[in-house]
Amino acid sequence: MLDVVRSTETAPAAKAPGARRARPLSGLASLMRRLAGTRIGLVGLVIVGLLCLAALSAPWLPLHDPLDLMMEHRLEPPGASFLLGTDEMGRDIFARLVWGARGSLMIGVLTVAIGLSGGLLVGTLSGYYSGTLVESVLLGLMDIFAAIPLLVWAIAIVGIFGTGPVQLGPLLLPNEAKIVLLVGLLFIPGLARVAHGLALVEAKADYVAARRLQGAGAWSIMASDILPNILSPIFVQASVLIGIGIIIEASLSFIGLGVQPPTPSWGGMLADARSLAFSDEWWVATWPGLAIFLAVIGFNLVGDALRTVLDPRRRDGGPAL
């Protein structure tokens, strides 16, 4: 997703033969640097970065086995041997959190990636072809799709395919893949609506008419004029959705439809701690809850900072007003 930002930014410079100097910073590095330049962006990046780092390096970290049932250490409070304590079955909570981050973050990012590609495609098309049958059909489909609540979809899917892996041709889809696909598809209508509204405005702009007068085709106009101009507000929306994706995964796991035990997941951990929530063993429910909270906050902060940073008028010291 960040790759798209880079390509739209460098494309004009690359195409510009008369350009004397390249823009001093370009691409992902520049985006990160500008994000870190804002206070909320920095905090968000640090949170998201730490979570990602932990998730990626889980196999090499000196952790307990997250699946290891140490019955002799059941419900041990946080301390020297178990950093964040253990759960009812004597599993190390810290290890389970770190391993669970892999699933949670992956699901968050993948669902949004699916939602984003579908939403941008539908939104741009329907916005560009505003007032035609294309728009009516696409938006109508989105409405139908969005009219059925997530939980109904989830129960229906799990009811049909079960919670186990599904054989799809040569591919063996794990249960997580079903969840990712489902949540990702359900993100499409919302993002498509936003993208449609933005594309509608851009499609009416004079520069789009100017491109048409140059004989540019519809796809070329959508790709090179409309899409780059609607990306940044959509990214802001998408970064917030990553947090929501994580929460949805957690809720599905919580009610037993998501990541299946014993694989650790934040939602599943919360579900296991259900009975201990108000007991003396506070740590069992607190840590996964805190992890979800942190991840959501982190992505939200990055989203907020993106909003500021991706505004072309804020770039390279243009006029402040």
Binding site: G18, A19, A205, D206, Y207, R211, A216, P228
Partner: peptide
């Protein structure tokens, strides 16, 4: 076009807008 803000694509450099 009328010289309002939408006459040029805000994300394209002058070189890019003219090349097209």
């Amino acid at each position: 076009f009328q010289g309002a803000h939408t006459a040029l694509n805000p994300r394209k450099t002058v070189a890019c807008s003219l090349s097209e």
